[in-house]
């Protein structure tokens, strides 16, 4: 051990200690997923179908689980549910295992488009679980002109000033500015960052708040009239108040994908593939749509959903081919520093 690696080793040891307490034993898979992002009885059903035990941990954010697994060198978990830029980072860090399609017959349940995602064409290290768009969610009864452009959010009209929220998660906050300017949602070039920063600082003065957890309830209560929203979360608002509508601005959206990643450190490759196959069955695909109100890349699952639901929540009916027109958020790599400094500048601005 060289001097340089000592801090690394001490650090990893200290942090992986907790992970090891829940580490995989034989025929027990350790999954980490967002709370409520799969059926509550998943473990029982999977055990009944395969005899394999599931231990389900939850993470609140992508960053939280990334922190845990990068600190422990990937030990401690067999399968993670993360958003696609993080799946990409896990793969780039060498922590993700290749997916063996021959062991996952239910992969055939996916739309062909779900095999063509830019971050991982052919699903070599990740399997898409949900996907959707980011757009504008608004109260059609509280707003004079229905929004159609990102500029309707960034330069809100007089009647909705102070009644607008934007997502606080950095990538989507900036994406609104990038898309309004016809830029890539993965821009890291300084001049573009500065331009978008100036715009978003200006917008900040007209915002009610930054919010990525309760924006739809602000619409329901009437605190807000227009919010930047993920389509699925806008559906939570629509469920409570039919006057709430969702629109993808004319400049487009990002395509977000939440995916399943197998950890290279997993000692149960067969069980892991059985688990993914199980998740990809039509029943679980349908559960996602009906309970999380997200679109599923699972064709069999989508087709099993009651058609009335697609009418009530029109964004559920967006065709996979249309989704694929939008650019995905990618891991920014070297560009992350400049990007996050720009975000801090916006956040600190008065």
């Amino acid at each position: 051990m060289t001097f340089k690696t000592i801090p690394a080793a001490v650090f990893a040891a200290a942090l992986s200690f907790t992970a090891m307490l829940t580490a995989a034993q034989a025929e027990t898979l350790v999954i980490s997923n967002w709370d409520g992002y799969m059926p509550k009885d998943m473990a029982e059903k999977f055990k009944a179908a395969t005899g394999i035990d599931l231990e389900i941990a939850v993470h609140a954010t992508n960053e939280e689980i990334m922190g845990k697994v990068t600190a422990s060198g990937g030990e401690g978990f067999d399968v993670l549910f993360v958003s696609s830029p993080f799946a990409e980072a896990l793969n780039n860090l060498g922590l993700a295992a290749p997916i063996d399609h021959s062991k996952i017959p239910n992969m055939a349940n996916l739309y062909p488009e779900a095999m063509q995602l830019k971050h991982d064409p052919g699903n070599t290290f990740s399997v898409p679980y949900t996907w959707g768009t980011t757009g504008l969610c608004y109260r059609s009864d509280l707003i004079k002109t229905a929004p159609s452009s990102w500029n309707d959010l960034l330069k809100p009209a007089e009647d909705i000033k102070g009644k607008v929220t934007m997502l606080s998660t950095d990538r989507w906050l900036m994406a609104a500015g990038f898309l309004a300017n016809g830029m890539s949602v993965n821009t890291t070039e300084q001049a573009s960052l500065d331009k978008v920063r100036d715009q978003l600082v200006e917008t900040k003065r007209a915002l009610l708040s930054y919010d990525d957890t309760t924006f739809y309830s602000k619409l329901v209560s009437g605190e807000a009239s227009l919010v930047q929203a993920w389509d699925g979360w806008c559906n939570y608002g629509i469920a409570e108040k039919p006057e709430i509508k969702y629109v993808i601005p004319k400049e487009g959206s990002d395509l977000w994908v939440d995916s399943i990643v197998v950890m290279k450190a997993s000692k149960n490759p067969d069980a892991v593939h059985k688990f993914i196959d199980f998740v990809l069955n039509a029943e679980n695909g349908k559960w996602v749509v009906e309970n999380i109100m997200y679109k599923s890349p699972n064709k069999a699952g989508m087709e099993a959903v009651d058609k009335a639901m697609l009418e009530k929540y029109p964004n559920m009916a967006i065709a996979p081919a249309d989704l694929l027109k939008y650019e995905q958020l990618r891991d920014l790599g070297e560009g992350m520093k400049a990007f996050s400094k720009t975000v801090s500048e916006i956040m600190a601005a008065k």
Partner: peptide, 16 residues
Amino acid sequence: QMIGNLIYDQFLTARD
């Protein structure tokens, strides 16, 4: 943005 938020963001958003 207070310093606590900035630190939180470095650990949990920027992963720096």
